[in-house]
Amino acid sequence: MRSFEELVAEAEAADVGGWDFGWLDGRATEERPPWGYARRLAGRLAEVGSALDLDTGGGEVLAQAPILPSRTCATESWPPNAQRARDRLAQRGVAVVETAPGEALPFADDAFALVSSRHPVRPAWGEIARVLEPGGRYLAQHVGPASAFELIEHFLGPRHPQAEA
């Protein structure tokens, strides 16, 4: 059996760009919600003429959609993921814009029929509302600082969710 230190070294060396955790295949499990965010997003994307995917990561979820609106954009703030998203989504005509957390979105008011974000931690509600066209929709699978406490407490001991938020 490999030591804890060897396992940690392997994890630290793993490429997780684009939030690709493929190196965990067969070694970890997760329970996904029965409704499937990627399927819901794909359905909504097929119904609109413009969409913005915030914090797209490596673009892996957006890339799964069989139909994209004629005007589809994505934002990402972590440079390695922004490049991965550009590489993955360029052939589909998606403009990937690198953004900085807390800054205004570089899009016009009322620019998108759909704004999505798979895992927003601190949504910029004012900016989301600003770039959504009248009657537009927002779709997200919210997580945040109070998520995954069982895992966090396993490694760090008892925590207090209120203090972490």
Results as ranks from 00 to 15, higher is better:
Pro79His: 00
Ala113Ile: 04
Glu150Val: 14
Ala51Lys: 01
Ala63Arg: 06
Phe155Arg: 13
Glu164Ala: 14
Glu5Arg: 14
Ala165Gly: 01
Thr56Tyr: 01
Thr56Glu: 01
Ala100Glu: 09
Leu45Gln: 04
Gly135Arg: 06
Val94Gly: 03
Ile152Thr: 07
Ala165Ile: 12
Asp53Gly: 08
Ile128Asp: 05
Gly26Thr: 09
Ala124Val: 00
Arg2Lys: 12
Ala14Lys: 12
Leu52Thr: 04
Gly135His: 08
Asp109Tyr: 01
Ala165Ser: 10
Val115Lys: 05
Ala165Pro: 00
Arg130Tyr: 11
Arg88Tyr: 11
Glu10Pro: 12
Ile152Ser: 04
Ala65His: 07
Val121Pro: 00
Arg130Leu: 13
Ala82Tyr: 05
Leu151Thr: 14
Ala51Asn: 02
Val115Glu: 01
Ser70Asp: 03
Tyr37Gln: 04
Ala90Val: 06
Asp25Met: 05
Glu12Arg: 15
Ala108Pro: 05
Phe4Ser: 08
Glu30Ala: 15
Gln141Trp: 15
Arg92Lys: 10
Glu12Ile: 10
Glu12Phe: 14
Pro66Leu: 05
Val16Ala: 08
Glu30Val: 15
Gly102Thr: 05
Leu54Pro: 06
Leu156Tyr: 15
Phe155Met: 03
Asp25His: 14
Glu98Met: 11
Val61Ser: 02
Tyr37Ala: 04
Arg88Ser: 03
Arg88Leu: 15
Asp25Ser: 14
Val16Arg: 14
Val61Gly: 02
Gln91Glu: 11
Gln91Asn: 04
Ala129Ile: 07
Thr99Phe: 02
Ala140Ser: 11
Ala124Gly: 08
Gly136Tyr: 06
Ala42Met: 08
Met1His: 08
Ser147Asn: 02
Ala108Gly: 14
Val96Trp: 05
Glu98Val: 04
Ser50Arg: 02
Trp125Gly: 03
Glu47Met: 08
Pro120His: 04
Ser77Ile: 00
His160Cys: 13
Arg2Gly: 00
Leu52Phe: 10
Leu151His: 11
Arg32His: 14
Arg44Asp: 03
Arg86Asp: 08
Ala51Cys: 06
Val8Cys: 12
Ala104Tyr: 01
His160Ser: 14
Glu31Tyr: 12
Asp15Arg: 09
Asp110Asn: 15
Gly57Lys: 02
Pro34Tyr: 05
Gly26Leu: 13
Ala11Glu: 10
Leu151Lys: 09
Asp87Ile: 03
Gly157Thr: 13
Arg32Ser: 12
Ala163Gln: 12
Arg88Thr: 10
Pro106Thr: 09
Val8Ile: 15
Ala11Gly: 11
Leu62Val: 09
Leu114Glu: 00
Asp15Cys: 09
Ser116Val: 10
Gly49Ala: 09
Thr99Leu: 01
Gly49Glu: 10
Ala38Met: 00
Val115Tyr: 04
Ile128Met: 11
Leu89Tyr: 08
Leu68Ser: 07
Trp19Phe: 14
Glu127Gln: 15
Gln141Pro: 00
Arg32Gln: 13
